[in-house]
Design a protein around this nucleic acid. Structure first.
Lengths: 201, 201
DNA sequence: TAGATAACCGAACGATCGTTTCAGATCAAG
DNA sequence: CTTGATCTGAAACGATCGTTCGGTTATCTA
């Protein structure tokens, strides 16, 4: 029916996301994106409509690849408390190891200017909501199995944990100090009393 | 010796900060800034060097006007716990009343792309450090006067409170719901046990 | 009042922006 | 192989980008 595409959509979006991640939406030019993806400008428009379409697609890909995989993997753990603590462990490891201080594309997008499209905003909100739902679900599981105090409110605690995720990602861009990020996480995880301390890194 | 300036630096920076605040650094063009400030483009360059110089000056002005005033006013309160709680009260009020969801220019700048200049980054870091120092100082005062538990660590708690400030400002851009922001604040302020609850708004 | 100095505006600079056009390349279906 | 739809790179579109230049205006010193 038609010509086969030279490069996979996934590859393109991965490379595009890396550019947006590093420079932000406004400062990422279509020419740089074209060069990074290996496609000509026309091909990008043919596939994704316009710059915002490419951005939203790349954002979705980023979230699915990074966040979706992590949540699925942690949700499969038998111990819900370990799942929650593991999320923060990975979050801190990612943030500290982030030499370019790129932070999280989702959170960065959340604080972008008025130019942020409604579609991009929706992606960010949905994905952050997904994190909160993950926390809520794990906390509910933990309470049912008696791992947590019965008077702990999963809804409220999940909100606080999501807030801590945001604060860690913001703080990491200014001062990616492991101790500081770890203290932020521990300050929130203290609500999960019998949470096993991870070894100092 | 020379011609008097038509418009005050303070006025110019206030208007420029509003533009940067709304659109972000990269999406704020010098032409829009010139129109907003009432000056020609050349005059802006004559005063501030280049776009980044104008941005840093506007950022400083923004921080001094908004944050500096608030911290000075709250620091003058007799009750240190009221000072800390008052900071969050005002933060939430500002965030909920922010119809354009502009958030905080300092925090937005913290998450800007790689284009952020070292000078701008330094302003952000210094000002956020100022908030943390404010918390630390007030907590120390409160502990000395017996208003807080003696085993409360002012350094650690100040870090956590600053983290909560960041999370509130990020969350407000996605979902400026008063209840949600209030719960985030209360979750952190619970460390200050005898903190007087403010009336539900 | 004359001269000096700084501030300002309008216009323009080359570069780059997001986007489109167009001709040619490629591959599945008939 | 022909057909026809899809994909692609090169080039160009007008618009706008950050920045600079020349000349004019306003204010100070003397």
């Amino acid at each position: 029916m038609s010509r086969t595409r030279a490069i996979d959509d996934a590859d393109i979006l991965d490379r595009a996301a890396a550019v947006f991640w590093h420079h932000g939406y406004a400062a990422s030019s279509m020419r740089v994106l074209a060069e990074a993806t290996g496609l000509g400008g026309a091909a990008l428009y043919h596939r994704f409509g316009d710059k915002d379409g490419l951005f939203v697609a790349a954002l979705r890909r980023y979230a699915e690849e990074g966040l979706g995989e992590r949540l699925a993997r942690l949700s499969a753990l038998a111990d819900p408390v370990a799942a929650v603590c593991g999320f923060f462990d990975e979050l801190i490891r990612l943030s500290v190891g982030d030499r370019d201080r790129r932070g999280c594309l989702l959170v960065n997008t959340a604080l972008d200017g008025a130019a942020m499209s409604p579609a991009a905003r929706a992606v960010v909100r949905d994905r952050l909501g997904e994190i909160e739902a993950f926390f809520r679900h794990q906390l509910g599981r933990a309470r049912q199995t008696g791992r947590l105090a019965a008077d702990l409110d999963p809804d409220l605690t999940a909100e606080l944990l999501l807030g801590t995720v945001l604060s860690i990602r913001v703080m990491a861009r200014l001062d990616p100090d492991h101790g500081r990020l770890r203290r932020l996480a521990d300050g929130a995880l203290i609500a999960l009393k019998p949470c096993p301390e991870d070894p100092p890194r």
